[in-house]
Design a protein around this nucleic acid. Structure first.
Lengths: 205, 205
DNA sequence: CCTTAAACCGACCCATGGGTCGGTACGTGT
DNA sequence: ACACGTACCGACCCATGGGTCGGTTTAAGG
């Protein structure tokens, strides 16, 4: 069973490095050789494991990117506490440029979303599906917040979720290439103002 | 002076169609021939007027894109009225997919910003400068709103401007390829909530 | 061992697309 | 009318990069 292990390991090395370079330089601006060179692998190796560059990226999306979004933005919502601070915390956490040693490249959905839009509908769809999952989870946690008396009853939960996602995506756009903590701080601050406007007044946020 | 007119006309046709196609398919996914074919012009014509594809796009940015952003998002701020409704109106207007007959493609900064980020620092800088102008104008109009008693004194105007821009950019990301009026409506609605949280309470917004 | 098939190599193919260059057509000043 | 320069043409050059394919190495099974 050594062969099977080798296969998995090589594929994982490819996907991992692939995501890293794709995120850094963009999908269409990264040649396979860029990735292969860094891993000391050949074209032959690559095409033995993947049908095409596109197929390769689909693997990356469905394995790595989905996981990252889940870990950063969906899992943290899974608590019984007041949703608003929980959401704030998850967003702040996800905006962190890199925790630990390796590049955690917080969030890359926005870059890929615009890069593939209208260029590759299949990949676009996969990426949008990920956003959708986040949105659905946001909505459900917001609705629960309403029931629990943390969020005002008049609030449109779908609208709030959309707005959170939009501001977050845009923030990622502004943060690109500048590790500007000032921007991040401003964003979090205003988000708190916004949240206070949808919180139930008589309960401590 | 016929020659000079011809020159201006051809350059303008190139830039105009160039922006259209670049915005539709992306800069790097558009070949010069894509544009030239639609205008019945040749490579020779193109390189007679522009140094390179990059030089061409710089022209487009500095002439057409700057103007569009000014017209849609900066000029409307130039009034003495309460800033918050004015800003809302300008954003709503700018999100309109296409007013009139030709494609007005509302706003394309976000797409180009992410496309050129880390790929072409010169163009990136030009694009960011445009955003900066918008930001500066937002800040100044917000500060005036404070003086005029429309906006609460504790508000961080820079933060608000950043937040508005972020949410707007992100909204454009979400709206791409879907002419989803629902999304736009949700966004405007939540923006109003947010604005109410930074408005001076004792004055009608 | 010795066969078989997976893992991998790297030279090659070829379409794409930015950029070049020698030429042509025509308006313009003299 | 003649010369000149501007606008434009389109065949060509060449680097890039996705994908192919015949071959070599290596692990697994009998």
């Amino acid at each position: 069973m050594q062969k099977n292990l080798k296969r998995r390991e090589t594929m994982h090395r490819l996907c991992s490095k692939g995501l890293e370079v794709f995120h850094e330089k963009g999908y269409y601006h990264t040649s396979l050789d860029d990735i292969l060179k860094e891993l000391d692998l050949s074209k032959g190796a690559f095409y033995h494991h993947f049908k095409s560059k596109e197929d390769f990226f689909v693997h990356i999306v469905q394995n790595l990117i989905v996981q990252k979004v889940y870990a950063l933005l969906v899992e943290p919502l899974n608590t019984q506490k007041n949703p608003l601070p929980v959401i704030l915390e998850s967003l702040e956490n996800a905006l962190e440029p890199s925790q630990g040693n390796a590049m955690a490249y917080g969030f890359m959905l926005n870059d890929f979303l615009t890069e593939f839009n209208k260029r590759n509908t299949e990949i676009s769809t996969y990426l949008k599906d990920i956003l959708k999952v986040w949105e659905v989870n946001l909505v459900s946690v917001l609705k629960r917040g309403k029931v629990d008396g943390h969020i005002a009853r008049h609030v449109d939960c779908e609208g709030v979720a959309t707005y959170i996602i939009a501001s977050y995506l845009g923030m990622r756009s502004l943060l690109i290439d500048t590790t500007n903590n000032q921007l991040k701080y401003q964003y979090m601050q205003q988000l708190k103002h916004y949240f206070s406007s949808i919180a139930e007044r008589n309960v401590a946020a």
